[in-house]
Design a binder for these strands. Structure first.
Length: 433
RNA sequence: GGUGAGGUGGCCGAGUGGUUGAAGGCGCACGCCUGGAACGCGUGUAAGGGUUAACAGCCCUUCGAGGGUUCGAAUCCCUCCCUCACCGCCA
């Protein structure tokens, strides 16, 4: 009853239950409007009864105070007796109200975001829609190798050492490859802060439950995260702390949009990915990523989505990497997203396009969970902001793409032009070390 | 980790059981004043929810969070979280 933001807009469900159900259907879920509305109706009825009793109690209590002040002890006693009788029923109604409210909230909290109308329907990534591509697949006059072969040969990627320290899905990066990795991250951060208007942030990497709830990883996806014994969660992406910077805030309209970027490690348990991409550093428990987050006015989020995607693409353009942009279909779009563009970079060694960035507009989905609003000028009340996030881009995967794209016949790696300033002018990582 | 002090509205800051959702100030909005402004004066200014055609009215909840005492709690009790100060430890 107090201060309760629903995970989905109950007013919308009441007004257009069929729309709600078709939104669920696009996510492959059974209709729920009827049970939601039934629960909602029962909840509101109990709420009304409870509030009536509370009003009576408040009124009587007020009178008791006045009678006592006036010395009318007998009348005060009578009122106290009356309110005393209310007590049990009141407690019962409170309990019931809370129970129904939690049930409703629990039901809604586990439902994914509604998809944008233009998102294509489809069961999995095979139905994603290619929007555009940039550059061409590079041509080699030798058989291009995969990144781990190149990295190991150069003494820069050591999976065995990592396994001794931490097991599978970790890597030790060394020497010139480590520097290349660092150069990539610095380059991206500089681009976004200096040219794209993002504010650099160094957020906590350990966060509490409600923060993961706000961005949608909880309550459903706790298994994909690492948690400390103290109850902190290791962030799976900087999206989590950056987006939650707006949590519980009522922002000034003119402050929007907020644009944040951060270079952070990301931690993922990869619980459901057993056996996938086990070779190399494509899928690790720990990796670095430069993240982009925007908090926008509701009318500005679609344009911001395009802008953000362009910011991420710019990274790959300047690195001279071939990529394509796809719109994820309904079956491939994440829980919190209303619409997602993936940027897939071409990996010559692997001979495949692989995701290197994912840019999502969550609309008001996260804002509702986080209680993130702004105050419209000239209106009373508040409105929910929109939040977006995108990788700008995954540093480890960018390293893979650079290694595979810039490899030479002898196993050396040419350093992309834009990274040379970050590498002390180095033009080539030579095969002989 | 130890000791002490605190957590009140956009901000500062009163308030130790009864019209206090909360004095006062700042800020902000509107109006008056002015040639225009400053000053001054006046009015207004939390969020979430229920009811409703209504962003009119009425009602409920919220003074870090959660429990408890009471007819009634910002005010009393318990637990937790956080902030500040000093000590210890430490990149």
């Amino acid at each position: 009853m107090p201060d309760r933001f629903r995970m989905h807009d109950l007013r919308w469900i009441r007004e257009a239950p069929q729309d709600f159900d078709s939104a669920l259907a696009r996510r492959g879920l059974q209709p729920l409007a009827e049970s939601v509305l039934d629960l909602d109706a029962r909840h509101r009825q109990v709420q009304a009864e409870l509030q009536e009793m509370q009003a009576r109690r408040n009124e009587a209590s007020k009178q008791i105070g006045q009678k006592k002040k006036a010395g009318a002890e007998a009348e005060a006693q009578a009122l106290m007796a009356e309110v005393g009788q209310l007590k049990d029923r009141l407690a019962e109604a409170e309990e019931q109200e809370r129970h129904l409210g939690e049930e409703l909230e629990g039901l809604l909290a586990g439902l994914p975001n509604a998809l944008a109308p233009e998102v294509p329907d489809g069961p999995d990534e095979s139905a994603n829609e290619v929007l555009r591509a940039h550059g061409e697949k590079p041509i080699f006059d030798f058989a291009p190798k995969e990144h781990y072969e190149l990295g190991e040969a150069l003494g820069g990627l050591d999976f065995e050492a990592a396994a001794r320290l931490s097991g599978a899905r970790f890597v030790v990066v060394k020497a010139a490859i480590a520097r290349l990795h660092r150069a990539l991250a610095q380059f991206m951060l500089d681009l976004h802060t200096r040219e794209h208007g993002y504010t650099e942030v160094q957020p906590p990497l350990l966060v509490r439950d409600h923060v993961l709830f706000g961005t949608g990883q909880l309550p459903k996806f706790g298994e994909d995260q690492f948690r400390t014994e103290e109850g902190y969660w290791l962030i799976p992406t900087a999206e989590v702390p950056l987006t939650n910077l707006a949590a519980d805030q009522i922002l000034a309209e003119e402050a929007l949009p907020l644009r944040f970027t951060a270079l952070t490690p990301c931690f993922r348990s990869e619980a459901g990915a057993a056996g996938r991409d086990t070779r190399g550093m494509l899928r690790q428990h720990q990796f670095e990523k430069v993240e982009l987050v925007s908090i926008t006015h509701p009318e500005g989020s679609q344009a911001e989505h395009e802008r953000m995607t362009a910011c991420a693409e710019e990274v790959l353009k300047r690195l001279g990497l071939h990529y394509r942009v796809v719109t994820l279909c309904s079956g491939d779009t994440g829980f919190a997203a209303r619409k997602t563009y993936d940027i897939e970079v071409w990996l010559p060694g692997q001979g495949a396009y692989r995701e290197i960035s994912s840019c999502s507009n969550t609309w008001d989905f996260q804002a509702r969970r986080m209680k993130s609003r702004f105050r419209p000028v000239g209106e009373k009340g508040t409105r929910l902001v929109h939040s977006l996030n995108g990788s700008g881009v995954a540093v480890g995967r960018a390293l893979i793409a650079v290694l595979e794209t810039y490899q030479r016949a002898d196993g050396g790696i040419a350093v992309p032009e834009v990274l040379r300033p970050y590498m002390g002018g180095l033009e080539t990582i030579a095969a002989d070390g």
